[in-house]
Simulated scan of single mutants.
Amino acid sequence: MNESKCQDLGLLFLRVSGALFLLWVHGLPKLLSYNEQLKLIEDPFHLGASATLMLAIFAEVLCPLLIIAGVLVRLACLPILCVLLIALLVVHPEWTLFEAQFGWLLLIIFTTVLISGPGRLVLPQRFS
């Protein structure tokens, strides 16, 4: 296998595994337990629990699905990075590196995808 194909497989693995992890651990629980999450979600910018939760669901459900499909990948990384930075720097600034390691690793993954792009293993252009 040539180097270009290996890079494309690596980018596919990175974007799909990172997106699935975010979707499974954070996105789906918010979507499937919406009413319970309304009572739990922090609202650092005073937008209201419902608006804040909908923005989080957008970033943690819709954006990962776009990234998995390879559609608007760089654009889809931006809301995810915003949510992660807000969580780490605004909502939980007291967290140690140990407590925040999952967030920082996701930040590294999605920043890498933002910089590198999706690679060539994406849906055909007519769907992108």
Rank of each mutant, 00 (worst) to 15 (best):
M1N: 10
N2G: 14
E3P: 07
Q7C: 00
Q7L: 01
L9S: 10
L11A: 03
L14H: 09
R15P: 09
S17A: 12
L20M: 11
L20A: 13
L23Y: 12
L23T: 13
L23H: 14
G27C: 12
L28G: 14
K30E: 15
L31D: 13
L31T: 11
L31N: 10
L32Q: 12
K39F: 07
K39L: 13
I41K: 10
D43E: 10
L47M: 03
A49T: 01
S50F: 00
S50I: 08
T52W: 00
T52K: 11
L53E: 09
F58K: 05
A59M: 00
A59V: 01
C63L: 00
C63N: 03
L65P: 07
L66N: 10
L66R: 05
I68P: 10
V71I: 13
V71T: 14
V73D: 08
V73K: 08
V73A: 07
C77R: 04
L78G: 04
I80W: 01
L81E: 00
V83F: 02
L85N: 04
I86C: 00
I86D: 06
L89K: 05
V90A: 01
H92Q: 06
H92F: 08
P93G: 09
W95Y: 14
F98I: 15
A100Y: 03
A100F: 02
Q101H: 06
G103K: 07
W104Q: 13
L105H: 14
L105I: 11
L107R: 03
I108S: 14
F110V: 02
F110R: 08
V113E: 08
L114S: 03
I115H: 11
G119P: 01
R126E: 14
R126D: 09
R126T: 08
F127V: 07
S128I: 01
